[in-house]
Amino acid sequence: MKRLAMIGVAGLLALPVQAEDFTGRGWLLVCGEEGCFVNAAGTNLWVPADGSAAEASLRELEPLSAVEVSGDLSDIGDSSATLALRDVVLIDTPDEGNLREIQGRWRPLGEATPFHIEILGVDWSEMSMEEELSRAMMVLGPACASGVEPGGTAISLYPYGGDPEAIACWQIEYLDDRTLVLRDFMGDQGAVEFERLLD
């Protein structure tokens, strides 16, 4: 089968700019002692620990919770920034359950080579054994980046450091704990069935 077309990884360069107002929907990824990582509006956000009520509310949520965050952005790079958090609101969306369920490693059914995809948070990596071939940011929602609404959850893939025009879009056609079927809405691969790789 054809490989899922992606662009290689490049480093993220943060360019200091004046702080700007921000509101966006996305996902709480993880929290640690020094702060939390949130992905919202297609941007990876670092939310430093500041002892505020908003930050405390964020920390109470489970990883991969759907949220809307607002605050002031700084250190803005190609796909990353720092967010001084003002407010966080929990969002009700069916995409949250799908995002949780697709976490892990998936191999195309019948694939003879050691190729698989690995999904961690909102990062989609294409792997050959332990070598990362490419990496992209997933944006989940009802529509592809092109505006096409395939029905159900659509996954738009934005290559890190790649051509912003080279965006793939997949619809989750079927999903359970062992099987994932994705339908290609930006290319010609049609439906691709994956099986979960267990540790």
Score class of each variant (00 low, 15 high):
1 M>W: 02
2 K>T: 14
2 K>C: 09
3 R>L: 15
4 L>D: 04
5 A>E: 15
5 A>Q: 11
6 M>Q: 13
6 M>I: 07
9 V>K: 05
9 V>E: 11
10 A>P: 00
12 L>G: 11
13 L>T: 15
14 A>Q: 13
15 L>K: 09
16 P>D: 13
16 P>M: 02
19 A>P: 13
19 A>S: 14
21 D>H: 03
22 F>L: 06
23 T>G: 08
24 G>D: 02
26 G>E: 02
27 W>T: 03
30 V>Y: 08
33 E>P: 04
33 E>N: 04
34 E>L: 09
36 C>S: 11
36 C>P: 09
39 N>K: 10
39 N>T: 14
39 N>Q: 15
41 A>F: 02
42 G>M: 07
44 N>H: 12
45 L>D: 03
50 D>Y: 03
50 D>R: 02
53 A>K: 14
56 A>Q: 15
58 L>F: 11
58 L>N: 05
58 L>S: 09
59 R>N: 13
62 E>M: 10
66 A>W: 03
66 A>V: 06
66 A>N: 07
67 V>I: 15
68 E>A: 08
69 V>C: 04
69 V>F: 02
70 S>A: 12
73 L>G: 01
77 G>E: 06
80 S>D: 14
81 A>M: 02
83 L>P: 02
84 A>Y: 02
84 A>F: 03
85 L>P: 03
85 L>R: 02
86 R>L: 12
88 V>F: 06
89 V>S: 13
90 L>N: 11
94 P>H: 06
95 D>V: 07
97 G>K: 06
98 N>R: 06
98 N>W: 00
99 L>S: 01
99 L>T: 02
99 L>W: 01
100 R>L: 10
103 Q>M: 02
105 R>D: 11
107 R>F: 00
108 P>E: 14
109 L>C: 08
113 T>N: 03
114 P>F: 01
114 P>W: 04
115 F>M: 07
115 F>I: 05
116 H>C: 05
117 I>C: 08
117 I>A: 10
119 I>F: 00
119 I>K: 08
126 E>Y: 00
131 E>F: 00
132 E>A: 10
133 L>K: 07
134 S>M: 06
134 S>V: 06
138 M>N: 10
138 M>L: 13
139 V>N: 05
139 V>W: 03
140 L>D: 01
142 P>I: 10
142 P>C: 05
143 A>K: 12
145 A>W: 12
146 S>F: 10
148 V>Q: 14
148 V>P: 00
149 E>G: 00
152 G>Y: 02
154 A>N: 09
157 L>M: 11
157 L>F: 04
158 Y>S: 13
158 Y>P: 00
162 G>Q: 10
162 G>N: 09
163 D>H: 05
165 E>G: 05
165 E>Y: 04
165 E>C: 01
165 E>W: 01
166 A>E: 15
168 A>R: 09
168 A>E: 15
171 Q>R: 15
172 I>G: 01
176 D>I: 06
177 D>F: 04
178 R>Q: 15
180 L>E: 10
180 L>H: 05
181 V>W: 07
183 R>M: 09
184 D>H: 01
188 D>Y: 00
190 G>R: 07
190 G>F: 10
191 A>P: 08
191 A>S: 14
193 E>A: 15
193 E>L: 14
194 F>S: 06
195 E>G: 14
197 L>D: 08
199 D>A: 11
